[in-house]
Simulated scan of single mutants.
Amino acid sequence: MTDDVLRYTAFTTTPAGGNPAGIVLDASALGAADMLAIAAGLGYSESAFVTPGPDASDERAYTVRYFSPKAEVSFCGHATVAAAVALAERRGTGGYLFHTQAGEVPVSVERDGGVLRATLTSVAPHIEDVAGDDLTEALAALDWPAADLDPALPPRIAYAGARHLVLAAATRQRLADLAYDFERLAALMRRLDLTTVQLVWREDEATFHVRDPFPVGGVVEDPVTGAAAAAFGAYLRELGLVPPAAELTLYQGADMGRPGELAVSLREGDPRVRVSGAAVPIP
């Protein structure tokens, strides 16, 4: 069964960088238990399983399910980018439509200097406040003093297909020093229905460094996280921290030895967030 699993890494142009994902381009014969077993066997933060879309006549529409090693997740950005690039290599560049548990996600793929880049458009995003007790518990699990937070970027829960707790570090050193209580943070995340915790440090107005603990998925940290990038773009715009139309760059994975780069695009008048990146096969 796993002979049909492709391995790609997203948000990078080199197999040694970015976030690896397993991809099954024809998962029609697989049940949920099969998909979970494949994802667990791979050990990547998520894998994507592709089947024909609801309208069989639309050859560019697909149903996509995402599994971490521990559970199914509603949406995954890096596996979306990886799956779209894998499809484009076999079926051509242009637009695709992914039907996910979170909703419809349009994806376009183009060739840029010999590398395929995919751009996903998120479902409608939103943000919400974080209860004081929940914030206190999150900081305790991370072993982050409240004084290490950046007051200019307040804690919030952000959603653009999956829920993420956004916490901003005041310094790059604080972001780099990540050693947290795995089970304690996982328990809080399960209670709040969080997919990751989006830890960020702002380098300048349009450049951010990010990290994403992912204990609920069975891994300590997600290397490069497209779903969280989309949620973070919505967070920044809704709080007025960037203009309504903005082009942002997020760097992630360097602290894990798998550097990746995400481009986040906000368009005035469109609440959705676009996240772009390259993807390449893993030999």
Rank of each mutant, 00 (worst) to 15 (best):
H99D: 15
D255V: 03
G113Y: 12
G226W: 00
A88V: 03
V81R: 02
E104F: 06
A152Y: 04
L236R: 13
L262F: 02
G17T: 04
M35D: 03
V166E: 01
V107Y: 07
R267T: 12
F214S: 03
D134S: 15
L192K: 15
P271I: 01
V219Y: 11
G113I: 12
L97P: 02
A84K: 10
A234Y: 03
V200T: 13
S68D: 05
G94K: 10
A229H: 08
R267Y: 11
V5R: 09
Q198K: 02
R258A: 04
S265H: 15
A246K: 01
L116I: 12
A82D: 01
V81G: 01
T249M: 11
L153Y: 05
V224L: 10
L116G: 07
E137L: 14
D148P: 01
R174C: 13
A37K: 07
A82N: 02
C76F: 04
R190V: 04
A187E: 08
A40R: 13
G240T: 03
A187H: 05
A118C: 05
A138E: 10
S45Q: 11
S57A: 15
Q173I: 02
P213V: 08
A169E: 11
V220Q: 09
L175P: 00
D270Q: 02
D58F: 02
Y159P: 09
A21D: 08
D222I: 03
P281L: 02
R163S: 14
A254L: 08
I23M: 00
A16H: 09
L120Y: 00
P125F: 12
H126W: 13
P215A: 03
A234D: 10
V275M: 13
R7P: 10
L97N: 07
V107G: 04
L167A: 02
L153R: 01
W201G: 00
G53D: 02
D212M: 14
A245P: 07
A138D: 12
D204Q: 12
D193L: 14
L241F: 08
R60G: 07
S68W: 04
Q198W: 05
F214Q: 06
A118N: 06
E104S: 12
R174V: 14
W201K: 03
P125S: 11
I23F: 03
I38G: 00
S265A: 13
D204G: 11
V216A: 04
L175I: 12
L192G: 04
A16Q: 11
E221I: 00
A147R: 03
E137R: 15
F208T: 07
T9R: 04
V166P: 06
V73A: 07
E128Y: 13
P155M: 09
R184E: 14
S265Y: 10
L36M: 06
E104C: 01
G226V: 04
T196S: 09
V115K: 02
P154D: 08
E110W: 09
L248Q: 06
T93K: 10
S108N: 12
V216Y: 01
F67M: 01
V73N: 04
I23T: 01
A138W: 05
